[in-house]
Nucleic acid binder design. Structure first.
Lengths: 149, 149
DNA sequence: CGTAGATAGTTGCAAATGCAACGATATGCT
DNA sequence: AGCATATCGTTGCATTTGCAACTATCTACG
C-alpha cells in the first residue's frame, strides 16, 4: 500500500481524528450510564492521585490541561455536586486547595469501569504493547518540550 | 526508569494530554497570526481535497468528525466569511453541497504555513519517521473499528 | 398510489468555553 | 518600609457546543 503522505503529517492527522472519534464515543458511554462527563473524571482522578487528595487550583488546571477560568467553573460544578471542596490554604491567602470528598472518591470509582471498558474496546484492543510504548514515549516527548516553553 | 502503569493506559493518558496541549498551542498561534481557528482549516481542507471542491453537509461532518448541528453553524460562519457556499443539490432536495470559494482556497493556503510550522515545532520535530508510522497505523486501526459500529 | 419510517439539515435553548478585565494577595527591588 | 510587578483565582460577556425537537424530502413496501 502506497501512501503519498509523509508519515508525520499522517500521524498528526490520524491523531486528531482518533481523539475526536474516541472521545465522542466515551462521552456517549458515560452519558448512557448516567455518569458525569470525562472532565469530571480527570479532576477527581488527579485529586485522588495527589498527596492528601488535594491540589491548588492552578496546579490542578495545569495537570488536566485546562485554562484557569475554565477550571474555576468546572470546580464549581463538582463542588455543587459535593464531589470536591475548596479549602483555604494556610500560607497563601490568594488561593485554595481543591480537596476530593468521600463522595468524590466514590464517584471516581463508579466512573472508572465504564471509562476503562471504553478505553479497552476502542483503543487498547487495537494496539500492541510495543505500539503503546512507542506512542506513549513519542507523545510524552512532544508534550514535555511543548510545555517547557 | 520503571513505570508501574501498563503501557496502553499510559499511551491513552499521554494521547489526551498531548492533544490538549498541542491543540492549545496551535490555536494560539493561529489567533496570534489573526487567522481563523483550526475548525475552519479542517473544513476548507476537506473541501479542497474533495472532487470539485464540494461535499454534502453530512459527508463533511463525518470527515471532520463533527456533529451535524455543529457543522451547520460552523458552515454558517464560513459562509458569512465567503469562504464557502451552500448550493442546492440536483438529486436530493433535502440537502446541500458545501463548495469552497476562491477566497476559501486562498484562506486555506494562508493558514497552512502557520499550522504547518506549529505541527513541526510541536510534533514532528520530536518523533522519528518510524514512530510516526507506528502511531499512524495503530490509531488508524482504532478509528476504523470505532467507526464501523 | 399512499403511508410509515428513515435521512438531510436546521433551530431553540441550556450549558460550556475563551478571553480580557478585575480584586486580592504575594514578591522583589530600591 | 514603599512601590511596582507578578500570581491566584474569579467574573462578565460574547461565542460555541450539545441535545432534542422540528421541517422537508426521500425510500420502501403493502
Amino acid at each position: 500500500m502506497i501512501k503519498n503522505h509523509d508519515p508525520k503529517s499522517h500521524a498528526w492527522a490520524v491523531l486528531l481524528t482518533a481523539h475526536a472519534t474516541l472521545i465522542g464515543k466515551i462521552e456517549a458511554a458515560l452519558a448512557e450510564a448516567k455518569l458525569p462527563p470525562l472532565d469530571w473524571y480527570d479532576v477527581l482522578w488527579e485529586l485522588e492521585k495527589a498527596e492528601d487528595g488535594k491540589l491548588r487550583m492552578h496546579e490542578l488546571a495545569r495537570r488536566i490541561v485546562l485554562s484557569r477560568s475554565n477550571l474555576t467553573r468546572l470546580a464549581d460544578r463538582l463542588e455543587n455536586a459535593r464531589l470536591i471542596e475548596r479549602r483555604d490554604t494556610l500560607h497563601d491567602r490568594r488561593g485554595y486547595h481543591c480537596v476530593i470528598t468521600r463522595a468524590g472518591l466514590a464517584m471516581r470509582r463508579k466512573m472508572w469501569p465504564v471509562y476503562k471498558t471504553e478505553i479497552e474496546r476502542l483503543f487498547s484492543k487495537h494496539i500492541s504493547a510495543d505500539e503503546a510504548r512507542t506512542i506513549g514515549e513519542a507523545l510524552a516527548r512532544a508534550v514535555k518540550t511543548a510545555r517547557e516553553h
